[in-house]
Design a protein around this nucleic acid. Structure first.
Lengths: 342, 342
DNA sequence: CCTCCTTGGGAAAGCGCTTACCGGGAACCG
DNA sequence: CGGTTCCCGGTAAGCGCTTTCCCAAGGAGG
């Protein structure tokens, strides 16, 4: 950028040296600037609309106020909720958030963490969950370790096996509780729209649900488990494939709300009456979807709070690290899963 | 950050000077580095896991690859869709997005643009629309002008009166078309949930809708226009207040989808049958809400495309500026607005 | 064999800031 | 009244990189 006003200009206009100008503007520790000079400097800065160069400050100070945030897709309400929490908390601490969307491209997290390293981010938050690609996870772990070795602080959300502070959503427990609740409503024959098989978030939810059913002796046949992307269309397609198998079930658990809504659309298109013809449950309790009709039974996850927690974890300097925080969910029963006769 | 590997380390390990190391890594223009040295440098860099310091590069080069994005609330699907477009396009150009959420706090945009200026962002995108606070707008205009004077490029979305490239959504025309479509379905007596009165996006939509009705001679009494925040709860509350007035209307236009969904919830809670008891229309065609039931009639706005366009506008160097791009919407009629007998 | 050009590496000057460190003057003490 | 402290402003050394400028070496041409 050309022509920007520098501290040099301010100092000259105020008739003081660079050092004094800097001290006047930053109020340097145990160092006083005479009130008169201070005011002269502040006035000059205001008159010139001086804006300190963040890069120069970063170089001189050796640190920044940047939070790097990597997530799968900001348009997905799950991630945008977490991002909102991160941004709210970051703002409260005077931090600026630099965000990168991996679009689920393998290895993208690692690239972005690298970018954040180059920018000397003081905090990096990685939100995601891929379980299959071991090599990619190892690379990410290595990059994060390098980042922390340089003095940065990293937090992973829903991404285990990383050598940093981790926030883990209790997908297993939430799905188990949901399974129990659905059983208690009288359902016995279930199907699951299982999401992507390589996403831990998805497989944990399937696992918890299966466990609940197994304990109660309810049915969940392998052919009643259909996988598919974590999207609306993924839910729609998975539901279609399930319907093709003419399953003898009364209740479908889609492992996230977005898929559940797609599934409901597929059911409607197939002429199934909702909720009477089929009970549908989701997971996450996405705010935007709280008013779908019939109201979607789901597991509420405090997504914004998780984002905020990630920032707080990164900022407090606890001695023993890495730490693991588990965040639980709460079953919310709505109209989409009516009680049925046992 | 301490302990990070610097170019100096790489140069020493490769047995060359800083200059050569830099040239080898960047492939400087009209300047050749002998292949053998080049390889030595690259190998050394890889072995040391060298990551160039972005701030040092910014200082030396006088520019950055940062896009600053300011919006109202990333958790709102309208803004997260635009943000997704910005990020996708930015990524394609090797840019990093730094994002700030104003939470609708007055003057926050100006603060954030200031922060982006300090970071020498090469592009700043402001998404928003506040019409009342003239002083705040002027300050923002001044800040953006200063930013562009320093060589940056700014783009405003839905925010007129700013001395920079602007993308304007045709709210008026979209709402007009929607009004026409609803009229053609047989509706004659309308109400509007008008959104915040200080948001241009909202008032333009009301204006366009009113114009369509006026032209056709349909009714839109002032007491049938209720304002409220652009949120789900805003829609719910506005609808409640409207119902208290026992309006004699067959169709409600909520000026965005999120409000429309809240309104539908309020109608259901009031025992109104949907869509038979009341037609409801929205605006935006939020992707996440495309499967609400009954399907919401709305005006589709290409939000992601608008985000991407903002980046492209900022990057191409057209001579004549500032430019104005108008983006239109398209009416999508779904089940929430059934035809009625004239 | 000498001069002129080309090739390509290195030294060093910044980019804009922070922060030791230095030093002059005033205040205070014996 | 000289010496010791403070107090507070200035000088300058970096932070890690890019890039201009200089210069040595080798090849071509006379």
């Amino acid at each position: 950028m050309t022509g920007s006003v520098t501290l040099h200009d301010v100092a000259r206009r105020a008739g003081v040296s660079l050092a004094t100008a800097s001290r006047a503007l930053n109020g340097s520790p145990n160092r006083v600037v005479r009130e008169e000079l201070r005011e002269r400097v502040l006035r000059a800065a205001a008159e010139l609309r001086y804006a300190p160069n963040a890069h120069a400050q970063a170089m001189a100070r050796g640190r920044t106020n940047i939070v790097g945030l990597s997530l799968h897709d900001i348009a997905d309400p799950y991630f945008s909720a977490v991002a909102a929490g991160v941004m709210r908390e970051a703002e409260a601490h005077g931090l600026l958030v630099t965000m990168a969307s991996t679009e689920r491209r393998p290895g993208a997290e690692t690239d972005y963490v690298g970018a954040f390293r180059r920018h000397w981010a003081s905090v990096v938050i990685v939100v995601g969950s891929r379980t299959d690609d071991r090599a990619a996870t190892d690379q990410l772990a290595e990059e994060l370790a390098a980042f922390e070795a340089e003095g940065g602080r990293a937090v992973a959300v829903s991404q285990p096996r990383l050598p940093v502070d981790t926030i883990s959503i209790d997908n297993h427990g939430g799905a188990r509780d949901l399974g129990d609740a659905l059983y208690d409503l009288g359902h016995r024959r279930f199907a699951v729209l299982a999401g992507p098989t390589d996403l831990l978030t998805a497989t944990e939810r399937v696992g918890g649900f299966r466990e609940a059913l197994a304990l109660r002796g309810a049915q969940l046949a392998p052919e009643h488990i259909v996988s598919g992307p974590f999207t609306r269309d993924g839910g729609y397609e998975a539901m279609r494939r399930l319907l093709d198998r003419r399953p003898d079930v009364t209740c479908v658990f889609a492992v996230n709300d977005v898929m559940a809504v797609g599934a409901m659309a597929a059911l409607r298109d197939a002429g199934v009456d909702l909720p009477a013809g089929m009970a549908v449950a989701g997971f996450d309790d996405i705010a935007t979807l709280r008013d779908v009709s019939p109201g979607l039974t789901t597991v509420r996850i405090p997504l914004e709070e998780i984002g905020a927690l990630a920032v707080r974890l990164a900022l407090d300097d606890d001695v023993e690290r890495p730490r693991l925080r588990r965040v639980g969910g709460e079953v919310v029963v709505r109209a989409s899963t009516p009680a049925v006769a046992g």
